[in-house]
């Protein structure tokens, strides 16, 4: 009798845990697979705003991708090309302009809390001039796309042949916070290489190698 109850309890338990697991099965990853990883960044930089709404080309900021293996995170002085003038969201700046016109004074500089972090990193004062009293400090971004160290990946070849950034990185221009879109597994790489060789990239014939030493050497 007792054994029977125990068996039933066990069977139910097993069933429940299967059901629970099944609901999450899509979220289970093999170790090392970080698909969907979207860490918070030290500055809440939005790709949706910059690449989507403003339509800044990817390679404007990630220019090393054409000439180096890394696409890289742009140096802060590149941000300053625009953000020397643009110090807050358009709305906030317009509001200040209107307010200043109403109060009949010169508009003050409004600085958004996120851009303040950029200026602080560069050790700039309220007038965006170098402040010798402050210490410049690099911004430690959290790396989203990481390959194991035994894989050699080079952006150059992919950019040169015309592979769109979105092919691997997904619709970054719609992401407020960057998320790892593909699983970056070897099977995924190899499938794409095979397909590219068979179908070409952008109507061009390419030879995407699938030999081991292409990536592992």
């Amino acid at each position: 009798m007792n054994t029977r109850i125990a068996t039933i309890v066990l069977a139910i338990g097993l069933g429940v845990s299967f059901v629970l697991l099944a609901a999450r099965i899509g979220k289970l990853h093999l170790p090392g697979n970080q698909q969907g990883y979207a860490p918070a960044q030290p500055i809440a930089y939005s790709h949706l705003l910059h690449a989507g709404d403003m339509q800044i080309p990817c390679l404007y900021c990630h220019y090393p991708a054409q000439s180096s293996r890394h696409a890289g995170v742009p140096p802060a002085n590149l941000c300053m090309n625009c953000h020397r003038e643009v110090t807050a969201s358009l709305g906030a700046m317009h509001a200040e302009d209107e307010l200043a016109a109403k109060e009949n004074r010169k508009p003050r500089r409004v600085v958004s809390s996120e851009l303040k972090k950029l200026y602080d990193a560069l050790a700039l004062d309220a007038n965006l001039q170098p402040d010798p009293g402050k210490e410049a400090r690099p911004i430690a971004w959290n790396r989203v796309h990481t390959l194991p160290s035994f894989v050699y990946f080079d952006h150059r070849a992919h950019i040169t042949v015309g592979v769109a950034c979105q092919q691997c990185h997904g619709p970054v221009e719609t992401m407020v916070r960057v998320r790892q879109f593909s699983d970056l597994s070897m099977g995924w790489c190899v499938n794409c290489h095979r397909q590219a060789t068979a179908q070409g990239v952008g109507g061009r014939q390419v030879n995407a190698p699938v030999t081991c030493s292409t990536c592992h050497f």
Binding site: Q34, V73, A76, N142
Partner: peptide, 27 residues
């Protein structure tokens, strides 16, 4: 090892604040 593989290390990227001209990361 499966458990160990599940932990997520957070690598960081610290780009130069002011990039010297002609310097390309990774080159």
């Amino acid at each position: 090892s499966m458990l160990a593989g599940c932990s997520r290390t957070v690598p960081r990227i610290e780009p130069n604040l002011v990039q010297p001209e002609g310097f390309i990361p990774g080159r």
